[in-house]
Amino acid sequence: MAITLSILEQGLIYAVLALGVYITYKILDFPDLTVDSSFPLGAAVSAILITKGLNAYLCLIVSFLAGAAAGLTTGIIHVKFKVRDLLSGIITMTMLYSINLHIAGKANLPIFNSENIFSISPLKDYLGGFNTLFIIFLVVLAAKLVLDWYLKTKSGYLLRAVGDNPTLVTSLSKDNGTVKIIGLVIANALVSLSGAVMCQQQRFFEISMGTGAIVIGLASVIIGINLFKTASFLKPTTAVILGSVVYKACVAIAISFGLSATDMKLITGALFLAVLILGNLGKGKKSNA
């Protein structure tokens, strides 16, 4: 039971990150490595503000905005200075590492003794052990609904068009670059929000918590989209969220087979590789048929 709860909690927190990665990877077709640093950025901002006594929910908003700024940086480097997409993300990611350290003040910042979004929840007494899960669920739901709404707006249409067919966006007399920047801003804002929730749930910030975040995000997106491909009634955003939970479950199963926490990243990578290979096998079958 405790394990299931933990899988759901972790999976749903990473689902917010996965929604961000969904925007860059799936919609924009942009391999955005900023994620590895914008995730701990959100955590650092939340952790330090909580220790300073700011309301934990407001911390989430500040973290969200900080992530937006990270995305904006990558976007400007790529669009205005014409640096390749992958490199733009790497540059921002590297620079953010130091900035994250500056924000938190040290590589490890515990917030065990401070209030957080879970401890100040008004429903805490009613929900008992499910309180944390419930709050996380609300955050994911809010992120998903806002994203769903946005993708149905005119601006959202343009965002979807730019990854699909940039020529059309130009023909519509709109600048591709601006649209891409908007996408990166939203994506990294979500990733940072995810980091903020994560740090409040585990009650500490740690500089290396972002290592491999992009892999987790990509794996969740790919699992979600591939696994629920046939379920056309599911929105892609829902599929991505489920993908994240499935992925966390897989990691948990691997660990339960006796692998230690040291092997975490190894499992993360190996599972991602497995997902990619399985995905390709599926494609092969189709083209042979």
Partner: peptide, 27 residues
């Protein structure tokens, strides 16, 4: 000339809005 992953209706709506602002109104 079109966006393959978007529906025909969405494509038409995109084109219909050319010259105007692509804001947060319903697509």
């Amino acid at each position: 000339g079109t966006c393959p992953s978007m529906t025909l209706l969405e494509n038409m709506s995109l084109a219909d809005n050319k010259g105007k602002i692509y804001g947060l109104g319903r697509g």
